[in-house]
Nucleic acid binder design. Structure first.
Length: 560
RNA sequence: GCAUCCGUAGCGCAAUUGGAUAGAGUGUCAGCCUCCGACGCUGAAGGUUGUGGGUUCGAUCCCCGCCGGGUGCACCA
């Protein structure tokens, strides 16, 4: 139940709606102060009274009922204690009733949100640099869907550019069909790297590459067949990774898709007098807004990144009529997004305000940046495999009699990789190291999974959950109740801030609280009513842990 | 140089959009399995929130300066 709203309605503060009052309520830092608090300092200005006096007057308006059991004034704070038994029963019942839908809502009903994420390049390996965008986007997709939005997942493929000319040259010189079918993206990368090495010594290779790229554009049969083959090969390979990460897409419209959709944008820019010539290139001047100019056309008349992104934004608005359109792209491109958002605004697209760059930190390696050109990359596939291997080794050591060992190792190992990318605020940089992802100690994915398995074990041993009433509550039990009650808010905030880590942190907090409870309070073997309540609580925790992790794309094994 | 982001315990991080005594983890040290799963739990130690000002009843959070670091800034995406 929404206690904030309940309190707000009771308070009925003059000049404030119940929603506004509810938004002012917060949870005190120590639980003995109360369950909710209203800081009265902000009211002091409009009410022209000292905060403690306001608190005192408001307190007089509220009398204890079956829900609020105590109201107290502490300085400028008005503290509320909720009837814990009421909250416990109410919350646990609600979770059990709603099951895996607990925390969901229809908040976004009728609204579409486009999410551009992962956006891999054709013929290039899926490396750890793609991990963040893929799992952040994937989690946002699930979180927004959970809240009733219609999410549209878009994989804006990098399927256009001279690199494909390079690849054809490389293939003709050093590649062969059989080896590539076998070695897949790694083999394509090998010949791509070789191209760059050779081009150092023989610059004429670059011209040849440009020539082949032109052939692709001109519709040359052989060049396009090769290109289509590269594309097919890539998508097939990459799909395996997406399946492992539980990430899905609704559209794969990439760069090449917008080739014929840029000219109207350029025409419109001209028409609106926004396009200026500068050093032979066509630009939109953004000096007025404190930004360098946005490049629209090169000297040779060909289009650029920003042009394509504008065409894509316009296409998406037309096709999906989005409420918001998100771009899950690393912060290196902050300026680029600011620029083309601004240009669209200048074009009079009022919906430009609904475009959001969901910026996140970059992944680097301990010895510097990654580069496909030099072949200095860590394949995501290898990371996943190594983590699964490590998980298998730990299972062998700690629980060798476990059934489905391989399946559990897959769940634990894969989860650890996703968890690692979604644990911290997304803006934080990540320095990749195998030691860190393979470290399973402390507040980690296996900790939460272990807790889930522990719940499952208790439930199995405890048998059927009979009728219960919350008659007494330990601090540990109440801490769990408060967390469970707050889960819907956590999901909402994660969606508002586009921050999946809120959900990850919540799962860890809930697991921690359950383990404390488990050690402190006996479940099976307690008096019947207490046992039933604690089993119900366990079931609720298990359910919410699974839901939270499912929103991130992580599974919780039944046993581990 | 200009713009922008970041700086919190030895380390990597959190902090309810400006709120009450800044929190967990890891590492170190000391404990807990004849009792529902020890991949668990308890305790100790660890802080001038980079720094100097300002705004405010109140600042880790907002503003200004400085220091340190990341990223971006014209025909790549």
């Amino acid at each position: 139940m929404d206690y904030k709203k309940y309190i707000a309605e009771k308070l009925n503060i003059e000049g404030l709606s119940a929603e506004e009052t509810a938004a002012m309520l917060e949870v005190p830092p120590q639980s003995d102060m109360g369950d909710y608090a209203l800081p009265c300092f902000r009211l002091a200005k409009t009410m022209r009274k000292a905060p403690p006096l306001i608190a005192k007057e408001l307190a007089a308006k509220i009398s204890a009922d079956g829900v609020i059991c105590e109201v107290s004034v502490a300085g400028g704070y008005l503290n509320f204690k909720i009837d814990r038994l009421h909250r416990a029963e109410d919350t646990v019942r609600e979770v059990l009733e709603k099951g895996e839908r607990y925390g969901s809502s229809d908040l976004g009903a009728g609204k579409t949100i486009c999410i551009d994420y992962s956006s891999i390049n054709i013929a290039k390996p899926f490396h750890i640099g793609h991990l963040s965008t893929t799992v952040i986007g994937g989690a946002l997709y699930k979180i927004l869907s959970f809240l009733g939005y219609k999410a549209v997942g878009i994989n804006h493929l990098g399927d256009y550019g001279t690199q494909f000319g390079k690849l054809i040259v490389a293939y003709k010189r050093w590649g062969d069909k059989e080896t590539i079918e076998k070695g897949k993206l790694r083999e394509l990368m090998r010949i791509y790297v070789k191209f760059h090495e050779e081009a150092e010594k023989h610059p004429e290779l670059e011209d040849e590459a440009r020539h082949y790229f032109k052939l692709i554009e001109d519709g040359d049969k052989e060049a396009n067949e090769l290109f289509a083959w590269f594309k097919e090969l890539t998508l097939k390979e990459v799909q395996k990774i997406y399946d492992r990460l539980k990430v899905t897409f609704d559209s794969y419209a990439g760069e090449s898709f917008y080739n014929d959709k840029m000219q109207p944008v350029i025409d419109e820019l001209k028409e609106k007098g926004l396009l200026k010539m500068s050093d032979g290139a066509a630009i939109v001047n953004l000096e007025e807004y404190g930004m360098p100019p946005c490049l629209i056309l090169k000297k040779d008349g060909s289009s650029l990144y920003a042009t394509r992104d504008m065409a894509a934004a316009i296409y998406r608005k037309k096709t999906y009529d989005f409420y918001k359109s998100l771009y899950v792209v690393a912060y290196q491109q902050d300026l680029h997004f600011k620029q083309f958002f601004k240009v669209l605004e200048l074009m009079g697209k009022e919906w430009a305000k609904d475009l959001v760059h969901v910026s996140y930190g970059m992944v680097s390696m301990e010895d510097g940046a990654m580069s496909t050109r030099t072949g200095k990359v860590v394949f995501l596939e290898d990371v996943l495999d190594k983590c699964v291997e490590k998980a298998a080794a730990i299972i062998e050591e700690k629980n060798e009699k476990l059934e489905n060992k391989a399946e559990v190792a897959r769940q634990v190992g894969t989860g650890a990789v996703i968890f690692g990318a979604l644990y911290n605020n997304k803006i934080k940089d990540i320095v990749f190291s195998y030691d860190k992802v393979l470290n399973f100690d402390g507040e980690t994915c296996p900790y939460v999974q272990y807790t889930g398995a522990r719940c499952n074990s208790v439930l199995k041993k405890g048998g059927e959950i009979g009728a219960f009433r919350a008659e007494t509550l330990t601090d540990e039990e109440y801490a769990l109740v408060a967390l469970l009650d707050n889960f819907p808010n956590v999901v909402k905030e994660a969606a508002e801030k586009y921050e999946p880590s809120f959900v990850t942190r919540f799962a860890v907090d809930l697991a921690k609280a359950y383990n404390k409870f488990y050690i402190a309070d006996k479940i099976i073997g307690s008096e019947e009513n207490v046992k039933n309540f604690r089993l119900a609580l366990t079931k609720a925790v298990h359910t919410v842990l699974k839901t939270a992790f499912a929103l991130l794309g992580i599974e919780i094994p039944e046993q581990m």
